[in-house]
Every structure is written in structure tokens, then in C-alpha cells.
């Protein structure tokens, strides 16, 4: 997947990650895309090196008695691809809100 072939929905996922949303469900919330689109897109982005995934620290998960979550972040390449996509999808810049305390998202690594 070359940089020039980023579709709008993939670009919006990259933008969401750039704005600080790290979990699949948060990305769904903020983009409005269905889970059947977001997850496969994340996997493809990871395969292409635009996105990195990491597992949440066990200690945090254990505290809350739930399995650790997987979170995603942009790589340098992903950032470049996003910049390129933003030049094509002008409206994207204003679409998404940055992470906000009231949203159901966390920043622990």
C-alpha cells in the first residue's frame, strides 16, 4: 500500500491515531467507522509499517481485573503518509477533536 493509495477512511484512522486515540474502540467512537472497518484497517496499517501495536502493561490490567488491551500508535512513516493524505483531504484537518479528558480513553502505556 503506497502512500498515494490511502483511502479516506484509512486516512481518518491515521488522523485519529495522530490525535492521540490509541484503542480500536476509541477510534470507532471518534471516527464513527464500524468495527469491521477499523480493525482490518489497523492490521493492514501495521503490516505496512504505518502503525505500531503494543500491549498494555499487565499491572494496569490486573488492577482492574481484565485482560490487557492492545494499543496502537503512529510510526514516522505513518506520520508522513498522514501528512500526504492531509494535503489531499483538506477537510480532514478540522474533522477530529484531539483527545479530551471527558472521552472514554486512557493514556497509560
Amino acid at each position: 500500500m503506497g502512500k498515494n493509495y490511502l483511502s479516506y477512511s484509512v486516512a481518518i484512522i491515521l488522523k485519529a491515531l495522530d490525535n492521540g486515540y490509541q484503542y480500536g474502540f476509541d477510534i470507532m467512537d471518534v471516527t464513527g467507522l464500524p468495527s469491521g472497518t477499523v480493525y482490518p484497517a489497523l492490521r493492514r496499517l501495521e503490516e505496512n509499517g504505518f502503525v505500531l501495536s503494543k500491549w498494555e502493561k499487565h499491572t494496569i490490567a490486573q488492577q482492574e481485573a481484565r485482560p490487557p488491551r492492545k494499543y496502537y500508535e503512529l510510526t514516522e512513516e505513518g506520520r508522513a503518509a498522514l501528512a500526504e493524505a492531509l494535503s489531499r483531504y483538506r477537510l480532514l484537518e478540522q474533522t477530529l477533536l484531539p483527545v479530551n479528558e471527558n472521552k472514554p480513553s486512557r493514556q497509560e502505556g
Binding site: 480500536g24 474502540f25 485482560p67 488491551r69 492492545k70 472514554p104
Partner: peptide, 20 residues
Amino acid sequence: DWRQEWEAELQYREATLAEW
């Protein structure tokens, strides 16, 4: 890995919603 990711997300979301 796949199961864990999905379960964690769903559980977490459910827990959060319940919390609120």
C-alpha cells in the same frame, strides 16, 4: 492475541459504560 484484544476492548468498554 486476537481474542485477547477484542475481549479486552469489549470488556473495558462495558466496564466504562457501567461506571458512567
